[in-house]
């Protein structure tokens, strides 16, 4: 194994650069080193001006998503040795405005997330003194997968629909809406329906499945979207056929 590997890193400094330029750095190629370790090596030893986000370095905080050799990845969970002998191309996540170097602006997602009401909605909220809402392990399994989203934005970066139409609510937000819709304790599905069935909601999705392929936590947002399409379609038929009281 060579003892070095080249990282080709996208640089963009607003006010200085008119468009991103690639800059090459040599970093040690070591077992267990993630792409992120290569980037922190650059920052600490070679070039303090390189900007990127990172925090937990254990694949759970969702900060360090970037495009690695063309694919959206958590850089703390993607390893240099898997790209040897290199070079490895590291760019910001696609489909987001670039703030600086590898830092993207996720403000759009942060604004969309509350619109799907990703919180517990109850007709009547029982007092805490009455104890927990019962939920069997099987009921927990119904939504558990969709509760694993770490908001890392890899799915938005992979989504061809979001690339063309930034008004699309998008995979993670829809999966989180479904996380509550499918929770046996929640009664807010009707409150989330308008946004989910709007033109920017589930029907915008063409079921390419790139979101689920990119997801590092196996949330499978594509399945969440498909499942809600079925729910919405069934509901539409019911609404058409049945008198109001029987829905």
């Amino acid at each position: 194994m060579a003892d070095q590997i080249t990282l080709e890193v996208a640089r963009y400094r607003p006010g200085l650069d008119t468009e991103p330029v690639m800059q090459s750095y040599q970093v040690p190629l070591r077992e267990h080193w993630a792409i992120l370790d290569g980037l922190t090596y650059i920052k600490d030893h070679l070039d303090g001006t390189l900007s990127f986000r990172w925090s937990c370095r254990m694949g759970i905080c969702g900060s360090c998503g970037m495009t690695v050799n063309g694919d959206p990845q958590l850089t703390c969970a993607t390893f240099l040795t898997d790209y040897a002998p290199g070079p490895v191309r590291v760019e910001p996540l696609r489909n987001f405005p670039v703030v600086r170097d590898l830092v993207v602006d996720i403000g759009d997602f942060m604004e969309k997330l509350p619109t799907v009401k990703p919180w517990m909605i109850r007709d009547v909220d029982s007092p805490v003194e009455e104890g927990e809402y019962l939920q069997t392990p099987e009921e927990l399994d119904e939504y558990k997968q969709f509760s694993m989203c770490i908001n890392c934005m890899l799915c938005y970066s992979a989504c061809p629909v979001y690339a063309l139409d930034p008004s699309f609510v998008g995979p993670a937000a829809i999966a989180l809406a479904q996380r509550y819709n499918l929770d046996s304790r929640d009664e807010g599905a009707a409150d989330r329906d308008d946004v989910l069935t709007s033109p920017e909601g589930i029907w915008a999705c063409t079921f390419v499945g790139e979101c689920s392929a990119a997801c590092p936590k196996d949330v499978d947002p594509a399945a969440a979207i498909q499942r809600y399409k079925l729910t919405a379609a069934t509901q539409a038929v019911k609404n058409f056929l049945l008198p109001r009281g029987a829905r």
Binding site: V128, E132, Q135, T136, P137, E139, Y143
Partner: peptide, 12 residues
């Protein structure tokens, strides 16, 4: 009550 997915016993 806010929705935390606590692990459960078989009886809920």
């Amino acid at each position: 009550h806010w929705g935390c997915p606590w692990s459960r016993q078989p009886d809920g």
